Amino acid sequence: MSTPRFLTLPPGVRAQQIETPLGTFAALEALPVRGVPERWPALLVPGYTGSKEDFLAIFQTLAEAGRRVVAIDMRGQYETEGPDDPSAYTCEALGEDVDSVAAVVGEGEPVHLLGHSFGGLVTREAVIGGATKLASYTLMSSGPAGISGPREKACRVMLRELPEVGLAHLWAHRLEPEAIVAGVPDDILAFLRKRLFANSATALVAMAEQVLGAADRLDDLNEVDVATLVLYGEHDDGWSPTIQAEMAHRLDADCVVVPGALHSPAVEAPETTAHALTRFWNQAEQRLLHTTA
């Protein structure tokens, strides 16, 4: 479970609803506090049990570089409604949602697409599908196939216990005590509870199955000509740093290891993460503009 550092919207950040042909998606949008966006926009997609708020700590720094930055709740997550149909939560179906949102965010221009954790498995479907007009692609704390490491165990617990004991029991007897032991502040704890219970129960189960059972699609991803970055914390407890380094090598991608961070670099090391993203995005734009000039 990703834990936002704070919940107050920074200057230049506002909540909005993104209307697409596939539905309406709750979003947070960041704009430069001064001036207008002069660079191509970025679209950020959260991980399993996460939400758009997981990117709050990096919004302002990213926008200050002169671009519009949008983060969404995927279908069935937090403030975006989802159906009781498990097929709506496959990586392929959610990838189509990302395509639809990216078309609106880009307004005909290329988009810098980022997927965190499970969001990486989802966004790669959009990249492979080829419908999204991309400026670059970033896999943040994600992997080539189903999740491994300690977070695999947590995900299997969710998948096993949620249908058996229900969300309220799981929160009260496992998730909340773990958060308290980790020292999560009361206001963030209250938000985590609110967010978890706002998720579609069907989505929580179906997404858990997806993040555990995802196939390796790096060969397919390698066929797409797009500047790619693999970014992860040096102590990631999801996909191991070794696995992610190997993934970067297979994709011939740029690779950034964030010192001191675990599975959520945007929360645990926001300034380092934001500056690494901005540098990569700017370089990707320069290369793309140069090749099309």
Rank of each mutant, 00 (worst) to 15 (best):
A63K: 00
Q60G: 02
G115T: 13
S51L: 03
S117K: 12
L113F: 09
V127I: 06
E38I: 12
A65C: 01
G106C: 06
F59M: 13
G108Y: 05
G82N: 11
G129S: 13
D54E: 15
A93W: 01
V69D: 03
G76A: 08
V122Y: 01
E107S: 10
T123Y: 03
L62R: 02
L114R: 01
C91D: 09
T61R: 07
E96W: 03
I72A: 02
I58D: 00
S136A: 11
V104R: 14
H116C: 04
F59E: 00
S51R: 06
L62K: 02
I128G: 09
V98A: 05
A135P: 00
S51A: 15
I128V: 12
G82P: 08
L56M: 10
D99F: 06
T132S: 13
L62G: 08
E125N: 11
Y137Q: 06
V111T: 06
W40N: 14
P86N: 05
G47Q: 05
P110A: 15
L114M: 15
V69Y: 06
D84L: 10
E109Y: 03
S117R: 11
E64M: 10
G95K: 11
A93T: 08
Q77N: 10
L134E: 12
K52G: 01
A135T: 00
L44G: 11
E53D: 14
K133C: 09
T90V: 08
Y78S: 13
V111Q: 02
R124H: 12
I128K: 03
G106M: 04
M74G: 11
K52H: 10
L56W: 07
F55T: 05
E38R: 15
E79N: 13
P41S: 10
P41C: 13
R75G: 03
G35H: 04
G76V: 05
K52W: 09
D73K: 14
G76T: 05
L139E: 13
S100W: 09
G106W: 11
E109T: 12
M74C: 09
V101Y: 08
G120S: 11
I58W: 04
V98K: 04
V70D: 01
E96G: 04
V122S: 06
L134Y: 06
T80A: 12
E64P: 00
T123L: 07
A135I: 07
P37Y: 12
C91Q: 14
E107H: 01
E53M: 07
Y78I: 05
D97R: 08
Q60C: 00
G108H: 09
G106F: 07
F59I: 00
V36S: 11
S100Q: 12
P37M: 02
A57Q: 02
F118I: 00
F55P: 04
K133Y: 09
G47A: 09
A88F: 03
G76Y: 12
G50A: 15
A42P: 08
E125I: 00
L62S: 05
G47D: 10
P41K: 10
A65G: 07
P83E: 04
Q77P: 00
L62E: 10
M74Y: 03
T123R: 02
R124W: 14
